[in-house]
Design a protein around this nucleic acid. Structure first.
Lengths: 158, 158
DNA sequence: TCGAGGGAATGAATGATATTCTTTAACTAT
DNA sequence: ATAGTTAAAGAATATCATTCATTCCCTCGA
């Protein structure tokens, strides 16, 4: 048996509830799991301490903020490109995610901009002009069928 | 002047606070914006009603749930492929996002699995066997430099 | 088998918070 | 002006967060 704490059924249920709506009173979570609020509070604290819970976010509608167009850009770079290129890419207009990809000497960006005109401008003026960038391949998202950060909690194993 | 409600500076500040940590007492938000809690509550309610706030999420560490490997898969399909293919793709093991992409007759998937072995199994057994799928191109994420759902609130315009 | 120790749940107490309602103020359009 | 609209403040009360002491249960070691 491992000394390391595990995620038991109650933790599991708490995480499920928070995945549905994280901004919910602690007392309501306690009601749903059938325990005292103090016990639930302690469990949530521990999940935060153990970095199983990493934060709480709000999901906003991108349209009022003129970020209705989503695009993915695969940026291929010189193998000797500058070390801080990744950081520079995070600062490009509209960039939400920067992932370093294996086997490509490159980065995959997810970005949100207003429209195609702005996307073109960002690609030409901001990304392609960075030192070390060789080429970009862009996929414009027509329609998002699913977009979630939820994990499959049932995949837990101690 | 537009009758439609706008997002003013106070709404803006409230959204900023919630983007940092959505699970925060309303009274604390009120303190930070310098207003009565009742007024802040009313504003948040309205932002929810107007669908500017679409939900509140918890960000979990993927490792305890055996989803430490992230990959993007561009799925190319027959132009006459079945209409519900997108829905089927959302049900594939580990798939977090499904985006329909323009100009490709295809979908871009983001998925989280345990390791390369599982990724191979999912690609071979689940994705490629779907009717209409022609080919897949997979990018394995080595390292994520930035991953956020935060929007640039300053891009608001009425 | 027994008891010590650790970990976790409960329940009570209290101080803080959410929520509702009323009043007031500012702004709009007629 | 004046009625209508919108939002903020303030008060009141119901609910909640947080702490603490206590109890319970499990595990380990003698």
């Amino acid at each position: 048996m491992d000394i390391k704490r595990t995620i038991d059924d109650i933790d599991h249920k708490i995480l499920q509830i928070l995945q549905e709506k994280s901004r919910i009173p602690n007392a309501e979570v306690a009601r749903q799991v059938g325990m005292a609020p103090s016990a639930v509070l302690e469990r949530i604290r521990k999940l935060e301490d153990r970095q199983i819970i990493q934060g709480y976010e709000v999901r906003l509608n991108p349209h009022p903020f003129n970020q209705g167009l989503m695009a993915f850009v695969l940026v291929t770079v010189q193998s000797a490109s500058r070390a801080d290129l990744a950081t520079l890419l995070t600062q490009v207009t509209g960039v939400q995610d920067v992932h370093q990809v294996a086997g490509e000497d490159g980065y995959l960006l997810k970005l949100r901009v207003a429209d195609n005109a702005e996307l073109g401008r960002v690609l030409a003026d901001e990304i392609c002009s960075l030192a070390g960038v060789l080429q970009t391949k862009t996929n414009i998202v027509l329609n998002t069928i699913k977009e979630t950060r939820k994990l499959d909690l049932n995949r837990y194993s101690s």
